[in-house]
Write a protein that binds this DNA or RNA. Structure first.
Length: 204
DNA sequence: CCACGGATTGGCT
DNA sequence: GCCAATCCGTGGA
């Protein structure tokens, strides 16, 4: 459960590259959240890319608004949005300033602070095997498990509260490319990426 | 196992 | 007023 890997924090240069490159390379990286001395972390296993310039499903497709303004900044900031009256979702902003591109973190595999995540998700300490694998297998679940909310909107991922740790790239053979989930526009873009055979992926 | 629908806030038309 | 980058419970096969 404790990672033995030596890992360094990803810097601005990682994020300011092209959307789909960053999306695929985010797979396998460790998302870390530090708050009140607690460390919660997990390995990213599923993502989706969004690009307001050509993609009607992207929140930036309509141009800059108060809600999406962070997506127009340079890569490496956190875009958190609220949806369906209930859920928060986390995105990593990518590319140069003005692009309006970001990657939705759809699922992680818990690494550190699993007990806290269980409490955040289910309000109790003991869970069934089914609940264990249901912990962080969806974008809303990831935010609930890590207690990521509106107040984390715009966080700088090169800072020390929420950031990513570098890990070796996932081999292309182990990355599944698929259509995105839960949207009604631009449904055919193959912009969902996930790690093959991972149990925490929201849907195969 | 799969399909369906309700919950519930806030952003945009 | 409409509807969403979701989740969960219910009900039927």
């Amino acid at each position: 459960m404790n990672p033995k890997f030596k890992a360094k924090k990803l810097g601005r240069d990682f994020y300011t590259r092209e959307l789909l490159t960053v999306a695929k390379e985010l797979l396998g990286k460790i998302l870390v959240k530090k708050e009140k001395g607690k460390i919660l972390s997990g390995r990213i296993v599923e993502v989706e890319a969004y690009d307001g310039s050509i993609d009607e499903a992207a929140h930036t497709y309509i141009g800059k608004t108060k809600r999406n303004e962070i997506m127009f900044r340079a890569g490496g900031f956190l875009y958190v949005y609220f949806t369906y009256g209930a859920h928060f979702c986390s995105n990593v902003v990518t590319g140069d300033e003005g692009k309006g591109t970001a990657v939705l973190i759809r699922a992680i595999e818990p690494v550190e602070g699993i007990e806290v995540m269980v409490k955040n998700r289910y309000g109790k300490n003991l869970v069934s095997e089914k609940e264990r694998y249901n912990l962080t297998s969806g974008p809303g679940k990831v935010c609930q498990a890590l207690s990521i909310t509106k107040k984390h909107y715009g966080y700088d991922l090169t800072g020390d509260k929420i950031f990513l740790l570098d890990q070796p790239m996932i081999k292309p053979d182990d990355i599944v490319v698929a259509k995105r989930i839960g949207i009604k526009k631009s449904v055919d873009l193959p912009w969902r990426f996930y790690i093959k055979d991972n149990r925490y992926v929201s849907r195969k």
